[in-house]
């Protein structure tokens, strides 16, 4: 098992790059048991989560990670990843501040997102 810091870094790189390019492409990262809470609303399962992500009311988005932290979770091999950063929506010059926490669970040599908790911390 790769070290958690490497996994966390690679994961966030991949996740946000994919998110910013094509939100639909995030589907394979989730499983039926995955749960997203987005600003206090709960979405369970791949299709529901991807639908939520795609319904977000902006055309283009760019994530800029400011801090990234990771810890081993209690579940064997799982990782808790905590991110804060900036969300540049539709090219606005005033980025929004966000905080996002993932729990990544290993599965067949890779990881899936078991939990995903997203909050905006501050408006632009």
């Amino acid at each position: 098992m790769a070290d958690i810091n490497t996994v966390a870094t690679q994961f966030t790189d991949f996740y946000y790059t994919s998110f910013d390019r094509d939100r639909a492409s995030l589907g394979p990262l989730y499983r039926p048991e995955s749960m997203l809470t987005f600003e206090g609303t709960q979405h369970q399962g791949t299709s529901s989560i991807v639908e939520k992500l795609q319904s977000l009311p902006f055309q283009s988005v760019q994530h800029k990670v400011t801090t990234l932290d990771a810890q081993p979770s209690t579940n064997a091999g799982a990782i808790i990843v905590s991110v804060t950063g900036l969300l540049v929506v539709d090219g606005s010059e005033n980025p929004l501040q966000f905080s996002q926490v993932f729990q990544l669970v290993p599965t067949g040599g890779t990881y899936f997102i078991f939990n995903d908790i997203f909050r905006l911390n501050y408006g632009a």
């Binding site: 932290d69 810890q71 804060t84 501040q97 905080s99 905006l120 911390n121 408006g123």
Partner: peptide, 14 residues
């Protein structure tokens, strides 16, 4: 586990 991020103050209006 306990993971803490300390940030510059940004009010709670969010």
């Amino acid at each position: 586990s306990d993971e803490l991020v300390v940030r510059a103050y940004s009010s709670h209006e969010a």
